[in-house]
C-alpha cells in the first residue's frame, strides 16, 4: 500500500513538473508583452516594470527562478490586476468555484447512481425508458447550451431563480444543475448498464432466494459491485466539472476562478494563467490518486500492491 502511494506520488511530481514547464514556456511564447499599450511606455519605466514582475533576464533564468518561487508557494504577481498576487486571487476565488463544483459533484454522483439503479430495477418499464431518454438528451447538451436555456426559462420567462450572481442559496440552484446535469445523465447510464450486468449474477439470486426485499437486494448487495465503474469515472468527472465550471461561471457571472482564468488568457496575464493551470492540475492529480486508493478499498479483487 505504502509503496503504491510512494510510486504514485513520484509520478504525480513528474506530471506537475511537466505541466509547470509546458505552461511557463507557452505563456512566455505568447507574443506581445503584458505591458504593451497603445502608447509605448518610456524605456526606463518598462524596465522597472519588467524587473518588478521578474520578467527580465534570459528565458531559462526566468524559468529557474519561477520554479524556485513555486517551491516556496509563491505564484507571483498578476500583471493585469496590478499589485494583487496570484495567491490572493486564488484564495478569494477558489472557495467559490470549489463550493459550486462540490455541489455539482454530489448532485451528479448521487443523482446519477439513484436514477441509474432505479432504471435498472424497473427495466423494460416506462420509468426505465423515460429516464434513459432524458439521460440521452442531457448527455448531448453541453453546459453552454443548457445554462442559457435554463436562464431563459427559469429566470426570464418564469422568474423563480436569479439570472446570475452569487451569495444566496437561490443563486446556486441553476448553476449547479447546469454543471451537474450532463454528468448525472452519464453516470445514470453507466450505473444502469453495470447494474443490469450484476443483477444476473449468482450471489444476487442467492440474496433473492433468501427472501430479501427487492430494494435491499439492489441498494445493498448489487450496488456495492455495480458502483465500481462509477468510481473509476470520478477522476474524469472532476476534470470535466473543472472545465465545465469555467463556462458556468461565465454564464451566471459567478466570481470564481474560471472567470479569472479566461480573462488571464485574453489579457495575456502570464503568471495568473500559469498559477490557475498549475493549481487546477495539482488538484486533479491528487484527486485521481485518492480515487485510485478508494477503488482499491472498494474492490478487493484489485490489488494495488504490485
Amino acid at each position: 500500500m505504502l509503496r503504491f502511494i510512494a510510486k504514485r506520488t513520484v509520478g504525480l511530481v513528474v506530471i506537475l513538473f511537466c505541466v509547470v514547464t509546458i505552461t511557463f514556456f507557452l505563456v512566455r511564447l505568447m507574443p506581445g508583452g503584458p505591458f504593451d499599450r497603445e502608447r509605448k511606455l518610456p524605456e526606463h519605466i518598462e524596465k522597472q516594470l519588467l524587473a518588478k514582475y521578474k520578467l527580465d533576464g534570459p528565458l531559462f533564468e526566468q524559468y529557474v527562478n519561477y520554479l524556485g518561487d513555486l517551491l516556496h508557494g509563491d505564484l507571483r504577481l498578476s500583471t493585469k490586476y496590478r499589485s494583487r498576487s496570484v495567491n490572493e486571487i486564488l484564495a478569494d476565488s477558489l472557495p467559490v468555484s470549489g463550493l459550486l463544483g462540490g455541489i455539482a459533484f454530489c448532485l451528479a454522483t448521487f443523482g446519477g447512481v439513484v436514477l441509474g439503479s432505479l432504471a435498472a430495477a424497473k427495466q423494460h418499464t416506462w420509468v426505465d425508458r423515460s429516464a434513459m431518454l432524458a439521460a440521452l438528451f442531457a448527455v448531448s447538451l453541453p453546459s453552454f447550451v443548457l445554462g442559457p436555456l435554463l436562464v431563459l426559462v427559469f429566470a426570464i420567462s418564469w422568474p423563480v431563480f436569479p439570472v446570475g450572481g452569487w451569495g444566496n442559496l437561490q443563486s446556486l440552484v441553476l448553476p449547479s444543475i447546469t454543471l451537474a446535469a450532463p454528468y448525472a445523465a452519464y453516470i445514470a447510464r453507466l450505473t444502469r448498464s453495470s447494474m443490469l450486468e450484476v443483477l444476473t449474477q449468482d450471489y444476487i439470486r442467492t440474496a433473492r432466494a433468501k427472501g430479501l426485499s427487492n430494494t435491499r437486494v439492489i441498494y445493498k448487495h448489487a450496488l456495492r459491485v455495480a458502483i465500481l465503474p462509477v468510481v473509476s469515472f470520478l477522476g474524469p468527472l472532476a476534470a470535466n466539472l473543472l472545465t465545465g465550471s469555467i463556462v458556468v461561471e461565465s454564464i451566471f457571472s459567478i466570481p470564481g476562478t474560471g472567470g479569472f482564468f479566461v480573462n488571464s488568457v485574453l489579457n495575456r496575464d502570464g503568471f495568473l494563467l500559469a498559477g490557475v493551470v498549475i493549481v487546477y492540475c495539482s488538484l486533479l492529480v491528487v484527486f485521481n490518486l485518492v480515487v485510485d486508493l478508494l477503488y482499491g478499498l472498494l474492490d478487493r479483487r484489485i490489488s494495488l500492491y504490485d
Binding site: F261, V265, R268, L273, C281
Partner: peptide, 15 residues
C-alpha cells in the same frame, strides 16, 4: 487523460 485538456487548449490556441 488526467490533465484538463480544454484548459491547455485555451492556452495553446492563444499562444
Amino acid at each position: 487523460y488526467a490533465i484538463p485538456r480544454l484548459i491547455f487548449l485555451l492556452v495553446l490556441i492563444s499562444a
